[in-house]
Structure formats: structure tokens, C-alpha cells
Amino acid sequence: MSALMKARLQEERKDHPFGFYAKPKKDKDGALDLTQWEAGIPGKEGTIWENATYPIQLQFPPEFPAKPPKVKFDQGFYHPNVYPSGTICLSILNEEQDWSPAINLKQIVLGVQELLDTPNPASPAQEPAWRAFQKDKATYQKKVLDQAKKYAT
């Protein structure tokens, strides 16, 4: 791991926005692996995503911060811009789009939180949530609320 990557990730271990958590995962030897993180994204109050904290996994590539981390919800996460595998489709996480080495973990988790209630129908990543969001708001709401129960805090 490059010296810069290490310094950046060590720095990320402190200072998370209120209601969020983010930490490196423990590996099989009982050490914390700075390249593999888990974080929790609280749904914004006053939205159908509220009262739940949605876990995400972040994987930092060896080229970080030149390249963005890979960020995933659980597999099958219900959201128009989340692939069936859980991979999040968000421009700041895309090297070809808005990723910049200056983007920090705080901006990433806030970006993901923002995405929850403001999906972008122009870049669908999964069929069910995308279709429902476009054509059947009632079903969409119900599914999101069910999911919120699953991740209730």
C-alpha cells in the first residue's frame, strides 16, 4: 500500500458525520484491514428511508486515491441506481466521471445518503426498483419501507 494511501486511510478512521459509522474490517488474523471497510448510512429523516441504517462495504484499490473505492450495499439492495450485486452507481465513485483524489470518505457516505432518496432514473442499475420508481410509486414506497424495517435502527 502506498504511503499516501496509508496516510489517507489512517486519517479516515476519525471524524465521521453524525449518525454514520465507518471502520476497517477485521481479517482472519484479528488485524484491521485498511483496504476493506464497512460503513453505515442512515436514511435521512422525513424520507421513506428514515429510521434505518444501511450497511455498505468499501473496497479501496491499490491505486487509491488515484482511483475510487468500490462501494456496495448488500446484494439485492432495492434502489434504482444499485446493481443487483449491490454495487452503487454514483458519479463521484466513477473514475470516468466525477471521482477526484480529493474526495474523502465523508463525502462518499454523504453522497450515498443523498442518493437514497434522490435516485437518478436516467441511469438504471436494476430492473425492479427502476421500473417501480418510474411507473408504480406505491409499490416502490412499500418495498423501500419494507427494506427500511430490515435495516431498522
Binding site: L9, P24, D33
Partner: peptide, 20 residues
């Protein structure tokens, strides 16, 4: 915090490693 490469081996919240 003590670490080697990407592995943090010890910090205050990870004190189960101290006797290893």
C-alpha cells in the same frame, strides 16, 4: 496504533492482539 502495510495490528479498540 501499530500497523504493517494495510493491517492495523493494535490500537486502543483492538487490544485483543496485545498478548499475541
Amino acid at each position: 496504533a501499530l500497523s504493517v502495510g494495510s493491517k492495523i495490528l493494535y490500537d486502543l479498540d483492538l487490544d485483543d492482539n496485545v498478548e499475541k
